[in-house]
Amino acid sequence: MKQKREHSLEVLLTREQIQTRVAQLGEEITRDYKGAGELVLAAVLRGSVYFAVDLSRHLDLPFILDFIGISSYGRGSAYEGIVRITKDLESNIAHKNVLLLEDILDTGLTLNYLIRNLNTRNPSSLRVCAFLDMPARRIVDIPVDYCGFNLPDLFVVGYGLDYHERYRNLEFVAELQEL
C-alpha cells in the first residue's frame, strides 16, 4: 500500500492575474461574437466550472451557458472502456455558435474527442477557449482560439484543477510539488 504523499504549492498565477486575464478574454469574445447569432458556452465538467462562471460575467452579449461531461481515462470503471459522455449538453447546438470552455488543454485527447463529437451536431461554428494551455504536453494538435495562459509542463492545481479532488477551489493556480 502506497503512502499518501504530502505536497507543497507554489503559486504560478495569482487571483488578480487570473481575473484580469479572464476579463480580457470576455471582452475579446464579446467583440468576436457580437451580432454573430446565438452563442452556446459549452463548459467541460468539472474543471472549467470556475472559469466558465467568471468568464460569463465579462460577456456583454446573450448566450446560453451549458455543460458537458465526459469520462476520463484511468479513473474508475471507465478504465478499460472508451470515452463516453457522462453529462450531455441540454441545448440543441445545430446552427448555433459553440464555444467550448476547457480548464486546461494539454494532450488534446479530450478536446479532440469532444470536437469530433460536437461537430456531428452541425453547429454553425465551433471554437475552443482554454483557460490554460500546455503545448509541451500536446499529443494531438488542437486549434486554440482563445487562451488564458500558456504554461510549461508542470502539474498544476487550483481555479478548477484538482489533484484527487483536492485544491479545485483555490482562487489561484499553483504548481503541486511532492515533498
Partner: peptide, 9 residues
Amino acid sequence: ARMLDFYRI
C-alpha cells in the same frame, strides 16, 4: 495504446 483507444484515436 489503451489510452489512445479510450479517446478513440
